[in-house]
């Protein structure tokens, strides 16, 4: 564990807390893509199949349980909470996310570290996480306006990815045999998807104005 990895995990956790806060405080999920949230729930369940087979640390187990539980809770709220579900932007959230699931799984069958159920699901979750933000970015682009908490949620998610890249650079330089092509290449792709959002986020922050994305 290095400082970049810890910062990455903490910003990831913070992003989820911000999203839960938004849903809890405003009883609204407007601006949030349910499809992206469902993809994240699939990502965590598929990746943490090792929860019962490999023990790494109390920290690791705790974070895995938090990520699985929070992602399922968010999806549950957006689908079933009587007030929250009413604010869901159904007509804006039309990205065909099943396509991403299928493509990621197909890629995992071709590119994996080892041909075992756990490793294929692990690779699948890495590929799916890389593209899971797409329905959310498309929804924001369509609605144009981004409320503060939604903007911060995506900002922290992007920061989490950026810290993970720094973590890999650090590990590559300090650990003798650190090579993780699947995670690193997917991670760079994932971070690149945020570049556009970050650009507009910083402009609005610099001008102290409301975040707006171009149509």
């Amino acid at each position: 564990m290095n400082i970049f990895r810890l910062a990455g995990d903490m910003t990831h956790l913070l992003s989820i807390l911000v999203l839960l806060l938004k849903i809890y405080a405003t009883k609204s999920c407007s601006g949030i893509s349910r499809k992206t949230q469902e993809l994240y729930a699939i990502v965590f369940v598929a990746r943490y199949l090792d929860l019962f087979t490999d023990f790494i640390s109390v920290y690791n187990t705790f974070m895995k349980v938090v990520f699985i539980a929070s992602s399922l809770a968010i999806v549950w709220c957006m689908r079933f909470h009587p007030m929250v579900r009413r604010s869901y932007d159904r007509e804006l959230d039309t990205f065909r996310h099943y396509f991403l699931v299928g493509a990621s799984f197909a890629l995992a069958l071709i590119l994996h570290e080892k041909f075992t159920v756990q490793e294929i699901f692990w690779a699948f979750s890495i590929y799916l996480e890389a593209v899971a933000i797409l329905p959310q970015l498309v929804l924001l682009q369509r609605s144009g306006n981004v409320d503060n908490l939604t903007g911060q949620y995506i900002f922290f998610l992007g920061a989490y990815r950026a810290f993970y890249i720094l973590n890999w650079i650090y590990r590559y330089l300090t650990e003798p045999h650190f090579t993780r092509w699947i995670a690193c290449v997917s991670g760079v792709v994932q971070t690149a998807l945020y570049a556009d959002f970050f650009y507009y986020y910083f402009i609005s922050w610099k001008n102290n104005s409301k975040l707006k994305l171009p149509a």
Binding site: R5, D50, D54, E119, A183
Partner: peptide
């Protein structure tokens, strides 16, 4: 056989 792949990141 020793398990070589340990995914220690989240």
């Amino acid at each position: 056989l020793e398990k070589v792949l340990i995914h220690d990141e989240l």
